Amino acid sequence: MAEGAETSDALIRLRGISRLYGTGEAQVKALDAIDLDIRRGEFVAIMGPSGSGKSTAMNVIGCLDVPTSGTYHFNGVEVAHLTQDQRALLRRHYLGFIFQGYNLLPRTSALHNVELPLIYKGHGRAERHAAATEALAKVGLDHRAHHDPSELSGGQQQRVAIARALAGNPQVILADEPTGNLDTKLSGEIMDVLQKLNADEGLTIVMVTHEADMAAFAQRLIWMVDGRIERDTPTSKAA
């Protein structure tokens, strides 16, 4: 655990989390009894070689996968005690997701792409429009609100994806290789956006990346090997 990461104010708390796939000789231990605390407002990068367990850890934190053993508390609530529907509600109301692929509807405006999750949350049209417009402004794309993805650069499309994650006002942004499809310049621009959201909005950000220069934007680096946390250290960005 990084210096100063107190368990008492952890928003995300994993204890003894393991995730097994398969049985017998084919069994794979993707996570091996990991302990991890992430405080509200932290920007954490998770790195490691292929097969290290970093994406599995992200999926468990995002309630997209269920651990085989151990406990996961989100904001003091034991996630294992939640039903499948309750976990879906946790994802919908408290978590925002950003992926390597932008996953935008191709013939739909940036504004409508950002509005989509709010439809599933039951927001009215005016409320959706206002929230989506505000989210696009936060990533510097309000002037491109009515452009389709084909009219946007890769970096702009990823900004739309970030705005979509922001629109629901989540407590945590989970970013899985968010710069994986971008060149160095655009990657830096995306990381500047995430860093600003963390600093200005107080958003908790958990990012999986294989790029050390992108991880350097975070305040804390977690290095995983063979399903275990090998190192958990502050970066130069730590307060």
Score class of each variant (00 low, 15 high):
Gly24Ile: 07
Arg231Phe: 07
Gly76Phe: 11
Arg13Trp: 05
Gly48Ala: 05
Ala110Met: 07
Ile17Met: 08
Asn59Phe: 00
Lys121Pro: 05
Arg107Glu: 12
Ala33Asp: 12
Ala26Val: 10
Glu201Trp: 13
Asp85Cys: 09
Thr133Cys: 05
Arg231Gly: 15
His129Lys: 14
Tyr120Asn: 08
Leu221Ala: 15
Pro178Trp: 00
Gly41Thr: 01
Gly16Lys: 13
Arg228Tyr: 10
Leu186Arg: 08
Val77Ser: 15
Cys63Tyr: 11
His112Asn: 11
Val60Phe: 00
Ile119Arg: 09
Ala137Glu: 03
Cys63Ile: 06
Glu230His: 15
Val225Cys: 01
Asn169Lys: 00
Asp35Trp: 04
Gln171Trp: 14
Asp65Ile: 14
Leu141Ser: 12
His129Cys: 01
Thr108Ala: 08
Val114Gln: 08
Asp176Glu: 04
Ala80Met: 10
Ala10Cys: 05
Arg92Phe: 06
Asp183Val: 06
Pro149Leu: 06
Gly51Phe: 13
Ala238Glu: 03
Gln158Arg: 02
Thr68Lys: 06
Val225Arg: 00
Gly51Trp: 08
Gln158Thr: 01
Glu115Ser: 08
Phe217Asp: 05
Pro234Trp: 03
Leu20Glu: 00
Val44Asn: 02
Arg19Phe: 01
Ala57Tyr: 00
Ala199Thr: 05
Asn59Gly: 12
Leu36Met: 13
Glu189Ala: 14
Ile229Arg: 07
Asp9Ser: 05
Leu64Asp: 10
Asp148Ile: 10
Gly76Ser: 11
Trp223Ile: 11
Leu197Trp: 01
Ser69Pro: 11
Ala167Ile: 12
Ser187Leu: 04
His210Ala: 10
Thr133Ser: 06
Glu42Ala: 02
Pro49Leu: 12
Ala135Leu: 00
Arg15Gln: 01
Leu95Asp: 00
Asp148Pro: 04
Leu152Tyr: 01
Asn181Gly: 07
Leu141Met: 15
Glu230Lys: 14
Leu136Lys: 02
Leu186Ile: 08
Met47Asp: 06
Met58Phe: 01
Gly48Ser: 06
Gln157Arg: 15
Ala238Pro: 02
His123Trp: 13
His93Pro: 08
Glu211Cys: 12
Gln158Asp: 02
Ser153Asn: 10
Thr204Gly: 00
Tyr102Phe: 06
Thr83Cys: 15
Gly76Asp: 06
Ser236His: 14
Gly227Arg: 00
Gly53Asn: 08
Asn169Gly: 11
Gln86Phe: 14
Arg164Trp: 06
Gln156Phe: 03
Glu127Ile: 12
Asp37Ser: 07
Met191Ile: 00
Met224Tyr: 09
Arg220Ala: 12
Asp226Thr: 05
Ala161Cys: 13
Pro49Val: 10
Asn181Asp: 04
Ile162Arg: 01
Glu151Phe: 07
Ser50Thr: 03
Val77His: 12
Ile119Glu: 15
Asp9Val: 14
Gln86Pro: 09
Asn75Trp: 13
Asp65Glu: 02
Glu127Trp: 12
Phe43Gln: 03
Glu3Cys: 03
Ala163Ile: 08
Glu6Leu: 10
Thr68Tyr: 02
Val66Glu: 13
Glu201Val: 07
Val77Gln: 15
Lys54Arg: 02
Gly48Val: 06
Ser153Leu: 03
Asp232Asn: 13
Val160Leu: 15
Trp223Pro: 00
His93Asn: 06
Ala239Gln: 15
Val208Gln: 04
Ala26Gln: 08
Gln171Arg: 14
Asp142Phe: 15
Leu203Asp: 09
Leu141Glu: 10
Ser50Tyr: 08
Pro170Arg: 10
Gly24Lys: 05
